[in-house]
Amino acid sequence: MRVNFTVNGCAQTVDDVWEGESLLYVLRERLGLPGSKNACEQGECGSCTVHLDDVPVCACLVAAGQVEGRRVRTVEGLADRGGERLDPVQEAFVEAGAVQCGFCTPGLVVQAHDLLSRVPDPQDAQIREALAGNLCRCTGYEKILDAVRLAARRKAAAR
């Protein structure tokens, strides 16, 4: 089948999509956007989190056909055009040491980005709740919390 949707602001038409394919497969294998990760492919780990019409979803749980006519924003679309300038959340993850193997990072970055767009100054309990669906095996989450707090401060200072 053919699927038409918008990815990171660009209109895309994808042909020969098998009906059973997920949005994650289409992004990774057909559009060359492997930033969304494939750690569990059953909605448990959050590593494939993308925005679908501004709502964070697990791309592995979205059938490719469901995105027809809709907008998707992946981790590749968070930095300023051309990747010149990182999003404050991305910058904070690097700086705070929240990245080790990094496989969970794209999903966490997208989820944290969503949190800060809704709650600019979150309490720790809110950060934990928002990121509860994103598994990380390396960091023990301490520096991920540091990163989200740092990004919130940076965004507040920039306002």
Partner: peptide
């Protein structure tokens, strides 16, 4: 980390990303 920026932007090539 020298690989930090690639990892936060989704550009770091993990084994499962190869094509």
């Amino acid at each position: 980390r020298p690989d930090g920026t690639l990892k936060v932007t989704g550009e770091f090539a993990y084994a499962s990303d190869l094509w």
